[in-house]
Each structure stands twice: as C-alpha cells, then as structure tokens.
C-alpha cells in the first residue's frame, strides 16, 4: 500500500473524526432522551388522538362539562396538542395563554382537576399508552394544579 502524505497526520484526523462522531452521538442521545416521552406517546398522531379522546370525554363529563361552556373544542384541542407536544419534548412551541390566565375565571377546584386527569387517563388507556408512560406525562401536567385550581 502506497503511503500518502496524508498518512503522516492520520492520528490527528482520526482524533478529529472521533470527536465529531462523539459530538453527533451525544447530540443524538440528548435528542433521543429529550423527545423520548413524545415518541412514547405516539408522536404527533398519538398525542392528537389522546387529546381528542380527553376533550371529547371532558365535554361529556357531567362533573366538569359546564367548565367548557362557550369553549370551541377544536381550538382547545389544537392548543392542548401543542402544549402536550412541547411538554413531552416534541418539536413544537406552545404559544397559548398561561395556565393561570386561561383558568382564572373558571373556579376550578381539586375535584374538577382530578376529573380531567381521569378523562385523560381513560383517553390514554384507549390509545394503549402504557401506565408508566401515562404517569410520565401526568408528572409534567400535575404541577399545573397550582395555577389551575383556584378554589
């Protein structure tokens, strides 16, 4: 095999390549980690189906349906899709109102909040989302109780 002039500095080239590969892999790993929940929820389509099921249940739920009077379900679903996508690490931005502002006038109590959680759980059951994955999403949503529950 003919030695080229490049061979004289191959350790440096190799080191550079290894570094680039490591950076790429680290980036990929971080990305994989960050959007793991998004993917476990079934990505864009999965989340859309979950939100669809949750909102439809909530509108039919005698415990909380009054809270949705005058709220356009289509717009609500779109807003929740973006929020769940952003929360779970998907490539979306949630630009809706703050939780505090959007719930301020609704007089939501803890029983109402938990009722919606149950509607979400049923919607995720229907989409065959594993219980452990469900809880990872709920863990991100549950702290919002501080802004949502006002009485």
């Amino acid at each position: 095999m003919r030695r080229s002039s490049r061979d004289s500095w191959w350790p440096a080239a190799l080191a550079r390549r290894v570094l680039v590969a490591m950076a790429l892999l680290t980036g990929l790993a971080a990305w994989a980690e960050d959007d793991a929940l998004y993917r476990d929820l079934g990505g864009e389509e999965g989340i859309a189906r979950i939100v669809e099921g949750m909102v439809d249940r909530a509108y039919a739920d005698p415990r909380i349906q009054k809270k949705f009077d005058g709220v356009n379900p289509k717009a609500l679903k779109e807003s929740l899709r973006r929020q769940f996508c952003a929360l779970s690490g998907g490539n979306c931005a949630y630009e809706g109102e703050t939780m505090k502002k959007s719930h301020a006038h609704l007089a939501v109590d803890k029983a109402d909040f938990n009722a919606l959680v149950e509607d979400l759980q049923l919607a995720m059951d229907e989409q065959k989302v594993p219980f452990t994955v469900q809880n990872r999403l709920l863990a991100l949503l549950a702290p919002m109780h501080r802004d949502i529950i006002t009485r």
Binding site: F113, L138, A139, L140, A142, P143, H145
Partner: peptide, 9 residues
C-alpha cells in the same frame, strides 16, 4: 404539601 400533584418538587 400534596403527595400526588406536586410532582415537580
């Protein structure tokens, strides 16, 4: 405290 909902602390 809230054992269930304070999931971020």
């Amino acid at each position: 405290g809230d054992a269930v909902l304070d999931a971020d602390t």
